[in-house]
């Protein structure tokens, strides 16, 4: 892999709140993968009936497209794009 090209891949932070259910995280990760993003970091916290999931994602496709696909998931209550996600390049 060319490290140069990897370092120029845009990186985004996303916070997602979704209902806890069987396969909740798999459902989320599946959409992230198939829509063209790679999970760099992921932190999950349980909050009552919900999961709060903080993700750092990398990918060259428009992040708005992923956001609207995640929002479509029945158990996703909220998807917030982090303020540092303005398609910035990941620092090498």
């Amino acid at each position: 892999m060319n490290p140069q090209s990897q370092s120029s891949t845009p990186s985004y932070t996303i916070n997602c709140r979704m209902i806890q259910e069987a396969a909740a995280l798999e459902r989320l990760c599946q959409v992230v993968r198939i829509r063209g993003f790679r999970i760099a970091t992921m932190a999950v916290e349980t909050a009552g009936e919900h999961l709060n999931i903080a993700l750092t994602l990398e990918g060259t496709r428009p992040i708005a497209m992923l956001q609207s696909q995640l929002e479509k998931l029945h158990t996703v209550a909220e998807v917030a794009l982090g303020s540092n996600s303005v398609a910035r390049s990941r620092s090498a």
Partner: peptide, 16 residues
């Protein structure tokens, strides 16, 4: 079944 069908359903449940 739940795991292998995630990408082909609008939603799915495993009733527990």
């Amino acid at each position: 079944v739940l795991g292998m069908t995630l990408g082909i359903v609008k939603h799915s449940y495993l009733v527990d």
